[in-house]
């Protein structure tokens, strides 16, 4: 069996992510790494998950070097945070040790006006083998690795972040 994998990283769907979010991946797709899984009760379709914010302020980092001189440099890194229900997650930008290609399964006959093949709504025939497209190569991801902090205030959704 042969499954063709098409490289389509310069195809554009024409819809872009906001720049402050796109800096964590590419301008059309971003990988968000969560500990555990998103556990959904009830209907998942179109459900609001949480509020994601990206802190605009650049973080200053201070290092004590071997020469006992203290150097401060301004990292361009911005801090993301995710509020799911009563839980606040703090994240960071992580550069991947090896780049990841994001492959997307394309329905056998993608429509002309949607070259990225992201539109899966059209009925797909099961007879033809699926084609996979490499839609992007990413070198960084947004990681939420810390334990969530409980927040007092109004809940933002019915979805809870559970640890698997």
């Amino acid at each position: 069996m042969i499954i063709p994998v098409e490289v389509a990283i310069n195809e554009r769907s024409g819809r872009k992510l906001p720049p402050s979010f796109a800096q964590f991946g590419t301008d059309e797709i971003v990988l968000v790494d969560l500990q555990g899984v998103l556990d959904v009760e009830g209907e998942m379709k179109g459900q609001f998950v949480g509020k994601l914010s990206v802190d605009d302020e650049t973080v200053s980092m201070t290092f004590a070097s071997r020469t006992r001189r203290t150097t401060t440099y301004r990292a361009e890194q911005k801090k993301p945070s995710l509020l799911i229900g009563h839980h606040l997650l703090e994240g960071k930008l992580v550069n991947l040790p090896k780049p990841l290609a994001i492959m997307h399964r394309v329905p056998p006959e993608p429509t002309e006006d949607d070259p990225s093949g992201l539109d899966d709504d059209s009925p797909t025939s099961t007879s033809a083998p699926p084609t996979w497209k490499i839609v992007a190569v990413v070198k960084r991801k947004m990681v939420f690795a810390k334990r969530p902090m409980p927040m007092v205030g109004k809940p933002s959704s019915t979805v809870t972040s559970g640890k698997s």
Binding site: P18, S20, F21, V40, M44, K45, G46, Q47, F48, V49, G50, K51, L52, S53, V54, D55, D56, L82, D120, D121, T124
Partner: peptide, 14 residues
């Protein structure tokens, strides 16, 4: 500080 609302897809099964 830009805020974004993170949502699930409208077509989870496909």
């Amino acid at each position: 500080m830009p805020d974004f609302s993170l949502k699930f897809t409208q077509t989870p099964t496909t």
